[in-house]
Amino acid sequence: MSDIKNNSFVRWLSRNPIWGFVVIVFVFFSFAADHFFALQNVENILVQASTIGLIALGLTLVMINGNIDLSVGAILALAATVTVDMQGWETLAFLGDWVLLVAVLAGLLCGTLLGGLNGLIVWKTGVDSFIVTLGAMLGIRGLVFVYTREQSFYASSFAYSDFGSSSIGPLPTLAVLFIACAIVIHVLLSRTVHGRNTYAVGGNREAAVNAGIRVGPHMVVNFMIGGFFAALAGLALSTQMGASTPNMGREYELWTITAIVLGGTKLTGGSGSIVGTLGGVLAISILRNGMNLMQVPSFYVLVVLGVILIAVLALDKHLNRRTAQEPAL
């Protein structure tokens, strides 16, 4: 037993079982679906993964903190709408091409501020983040409809919509952006004080307070990071479409939470990792892509994903029960 335990690869896999699952589904579809195992398709998967993936990066921090943010889908839509709309503003025409930068920054700022507002309300009122962000989800989506009068906006800058389909070397730009961001957040979480505090606050809030961590501001920062990445995901998605629609990002909060939970983050906080989240995001993207190629009707795809979510978590619970049975002293 000790031989197996000391094997660091096995230990790693037992902490990130989702990666075993990713490999299995990847191999499965490589054989089962035509055109799955091709560079072009892998690129597709990465681009598709980048939207939920970007949201998931920020939301993982919020969830390890023991909070949740249900408003990410709505923030995504608002940020995309603002950025796409501002490109066409007459009043900013004097900026020339620089208007794109201003529009992008404005969209990202929107998301960051709304995330911060969520966090501030959670901190100052003490209302559960589930409730606060549920309200924010409804309210922000409403704002998007007010803003757009239920219309879709089209990007007036060609550079903007070209960005979504561009590549850096062999890799799509959006995939590179996602992977780069994932590395940054992974380092933030595993190597910095803020990251360590994220685990401590989620693991035992009172002990964190006693250790001198300023829990309120800390949580606000994570909500801001969550909002920022939701907005970034909105921009990424709208560059692919060359447009924004008032309904974009609907139910994305649910997809994202599914991916994060598949990746091993607990809803109660205190544990989780970006490596796991990445696995969860890839698992969902590969399943959707593969079933799509096998021409499974999309409704069945939902059924399969739902079953898999529960099955994976049940398996995880089963595997970890033995450690939970360690002597309660």
Partner: peptide, 15 residues
């Protein structure tokens, strides 16, 4: 009030 039970020994001591 004292410990983050789900963290390891080292991280608790240096918290």
């Amino acid at each position: 009030q004292g410990l983050v039970l789900g963290m390891n020994c080292r991280d608790n001591i240096t918290l």
